[in-house]
């Protein structure tokens, strides 16, 4: 289970966001370069349509693979009241032949992406991860070296934190509270609820760039 919010930011303000995150988190950023393959079951396999994501971390000396399954979002009055999406999410680290394994089992490639950017991982009431990345598509199958941005000039920001049935309310509150610090630069909302870029971003970015993030927003 995880709590998640997403938003977008213009690439020209990403450096300011990085300065702000560096100041808020107090940890070093990690480079992010993930090849993401989305697979779906073939027409005859399984009672329902199913989707699984294979993530290849290209930042590692030896690329490492993870299988990720994202389930349905939590529903009901309680879920509506919080501005963070709570959903099931399971990951499993796997050996490098996982793509061949899923193809053999009858899964087909639906689409693939390359996410390039950076991330911050820190503890602030919850184990929060912020990922800032440009989302790229491949013009040829698996050609990660020739990837081009899906939305040039715009990068995606995702804030996630692992949660459980017992603590999701506290984790959601921690994520929500952290997002407020980023509000002058970008607005974060539940995935699928697009809020666009924020009008204060340029001024906030200029302020951050001029004093290196020393002044609280």
């Amino acid at each position: 289970m995880e709590c998640v919010v997403q938003g977008i930011i213009e690439t020209q303000h990403v450096e300011a966001l990085e300065i702000l995150l560096q100041g808020l988190c107090g940890v070093q950023r990690e480079r992010l370069r993930i090849h993401e393959l989305c697979l779906k079951n073939g027409p005859h396999l399984g009672p329902v349509s199913s989707e699984v994501r294979l993530l290849c971390d290209l930042e590692q000396t030896e690329p490492s693979w993870t299988v990720r399954h994202v389930g349905g979002a939590m529903r009901g009055a309680g879920a509506d009241q919080i501005s963070v999406l709570v959903r099931t999410m399971v990951e499993s680290k796997v050996s490098k032949n996982v793509l061949r394994m899923f193809y053999t089992l009858g899964y087909k490639l639906d689409h693939e992406l390359l996410r390039v950017g950076f991330s911050f991982k820190f503890n602030r009431g919850a184990q929060i991860t912020v990922r800032v990345s440009s989302v790229n598509k491949m013009l040829k199958l698996h050609a990660t070296d020739e990837a081009v941005p899906v939305t040039p000039g715009i990068q995606m920001v995702e804030v996630t934190a692992p949660a459980s049935d017992e603590n999701y309310a506290e984790v959601a509150a921690a994520v929500q509270s952290f997002c407020e610090y980023l509000a002058p630069l970008l607005h974060l909302s539940k995935p699928g609820v697009s809020t666009g870029v924020v009008p204060t971003a340029a001024a906030a970015a200029a302020s951050l760039m001029s004093d290196g993030g020393g002044t609280p927003l």
Binding site: L45, G46, P47, V48, S50, V52, H69, V90, G106
Partner: peptide, 8 residues
């Protein structure tokens, strides 16, 4: 757990 959720 992932295999259970996929039901394939």
């Amino acid at each position: 757990t992932i295999m259970e959720k996929l039901q394939s």
